[in-house]
C-alpha cells in the first residue's frame, strides 16, 4: 500500500529517525508526535492509516492517548501498534484491553520485523 500514512508517537529522537528513514524507504508517509499531548490532535488532523504508539511519553502516557483515540468515533478504527520497552504483563494486558492491535517490545524486535507487522495490519484494515 504505497503512500500509507503512519503516525509515529515516540519521544526518543534516535528511534524517531529510524522509523522515519525506514518507513520512507518502504514507501510510507511518516508523521511524528513527540509527546502524548499532541498525539491526539495530530491523529485528528492527519487521519493516519496506522499509529505506532510508545507508552512512556512526556505530558500524557501512551495508554491515555490510546483511550482517547478509541473513544473518538472517527479515529477508533485506525489500527494501533504499541511499541514500548515496557514488558510488564499488566501493561500488555491493559494495552490490548484498550483496543491496541498488537503490543511489541522494541528491544526484542528487528526494524524489518516491525515493517512486516505494519504491512500486515494495513492489509487487514
Amino acid at each position: 500500500m504505497p503512500d500509507a500514512k503512519i503516525l509515529v508517537v515516540e519521544d526518543d529522537v534516535f528511534l524517531t529517525k529510524v522509523y522515519q528513514d525506514k518507513f520512507s524507504r518502504e514507501g510510507f508517509l511518516t508523521i511524528v508526535a513527540s509527546d502524548g499531548a499532541v498525539a491526539f490532535n495530530k491523529a485528528k488532523k492527519e487521519k493516519p492509516d496506522l499509529i505506532i504508539l510508545d507508552l512512556l511519553l512526556p505530558k500524557k502516557t501512551g495508554l491515555d492517548v490510546l483511550k482517547e483515540l478509541k473513544e473518538d468515533k472517527e479515529l477508533k478504527k485506525i489500527p494501533v501498534l504499541i511499541l514500548s520497552n515496557l514488558g510488564r504483563g499488566q501493561d500488555i494486558e491493559k494495552g490490548k484491553e484498550l483496543g491496541a492491535d498488537d503490543y511489541l517490545v522494541k528491544a526484542d524486535m528487528t526494524i524489518s520485523g516491525i515493517v512486516g507487522k505494519v504491512k500486515k495490519l494495513l492489509g487487514k484494515s
Partner: peptide, 17 residues
C-alpha cells in the same frame, strides 16, 4: 533496564539497516 533498552534498540535498528 528500561532506560538501557532505548539506546540499545536504536543501536540495534541502525546497525540492522
Amino acid at each position: 533496564s528500561h532506560q538501557l533498552k532505548t539506546p540499545l534498540t536504536a543501536i540495534s535498528w541502525f546497525t540492522e539497516m
